[in-house]
């Protein structure tokens, strides 16, 4: 018993020392992990709860997530209901400083303009988010706002390295601003491009680039595409096919590919998040590749 106590105390001391050296960031989605890397650099340790092949709506509060959330100094998530099925369970066992309202609780959708906020919510509409569309990272202007907020939080939590974070933020913000100008110029011919989406995951990208979402393969969010709905889309697009059909790496391809073959519009997988394809290794590459893929499809 005494030995057991000693082991426990030892374990506690070693781990608490380690956690103080670095800021542990628990990113619910890989895009937030990537942003935390841009600002936090070598001073932060990042754990991403999900990867590009996972649908962040449908994650279980699996054991490893409980362990990582418990040690987190910052929990960094999209919010707007995206993680409602698993984050609350993790928070119950996490530090008090990462609870809602505290400085270690960073919810990206709270610092940007949220799109598609429904006026009336009813489950017959599918698994709809009453808080609006949570996939906020696909507008680079939102990334700027969230990066600013993350920097503030890091400065608060790890005050000794405040200037380190501020410098990294300034450098990132400058490069990001330049990139946005470049992307907006490069993507100007995409304006008005007609897009069919699988689920409404690309709304922010569509909104930013001025594309037009003409249909969604899921008749209702969260409810897989049905044959009758696809048949309806086929009739709708027979005469005037859309420019492209897009989906995320985690969404099944059969519905997109079927429709693509019938109406002769290209079906493409956009990276959606970090490592969504082999070259989208950071936020810069993510937007670069998304635009190039869309341009490729338009010129097809």
């Amino acid at each position: 018993m005494r030995l057991f106590k000693l082991i426990l105390i030892g374990l506690f001391c070693t781990t608490s020392n380690v956690t103080h050296a670095m800021v542990n960031i628990f990113a619910c989605e890989p895009e937030w992990g990537a942003l935390a890397k841009e600002i936090g650099g070598s001073k932060v340790k990042i754990f991403s709860a999900t990867h590009a092949k996972q649908d962040p709506h449908y994650i279980r509060a699996r054991p490893s997530l409980i362990a990582k959330a418990r040690k987190a100094n910052i929990i960094f998530c999209s919010g707007a209901g995206l993680e409602v099925g698993w984050l609350p369970l993790l928070l119950q066992k996490a530090e008090s400083s990462v609870q809602p309202g505290m400085e270690g609780h960073l919810i990206a959708s709270k610092f940007v303009k949220v799109l598609e906020k429904p006026i009336v919510v009813d489950r017959t509409m599918g698994d709809i988010h009453p808080e609006g569309n949570p996939h906020v990272h696909l507008n680079p202007h939102n990334i700027s706002l969230i990066a600013k907020e993350l920097t503030k939080r890091l400065e608060l939590i790890d005050a000794t390295n405040a200037s380190f974070y501020r410098n990294r933020f300034n450098s990132f913000a400058l490069r990001w601003k330049e990139a946005i100008v470049r992307w907006e110029k490069n993507a100007s011919d995409l304006k008005g491009m007609q897009v069919v989406v699988h689920h409404r995951t690309f709304s922010y990208l569509i909104d930013w680039l001025g594309l037009i979402e003409v249909a969604s393969l899921e008749l209702k969010p969260g409810i897989p595409a049905t044959a009758s709905h696809l048949e309806g889309l086929l009739q709708q697009f027979k005469t005037k096919p859309p420019d492209v059909i897009v989906r995320t790496p985690y969404e099944p391809g059969n519905a997109s590919i079927w429709l693509s073959e019938k109406i002769n519009s290209p079906a493409i997988v956009l990276p959606y998040t970090i490592n969504g394809d082999v070259s989208s290794v950071d936020l810069f590459a993510l937007f670069e590749n998304s635009i190039n893929l869309l341009k490729g499809a338009l010129n097809d």
Partner: peptide, 22 residues
């Protein structure tokens, strides 16, 4: 009001201007 979301000092609850519908 959005911009003054974080003030100095630790353990300060942070509020956003967005109304939460839950």
């Amino acid at each position: 009001r959005d911009q003054v979301s974080v003030s100095t000092g630790k353990k300060v609850p942070i509020r956003s201007s967005r109304r939460i519908l839950s």
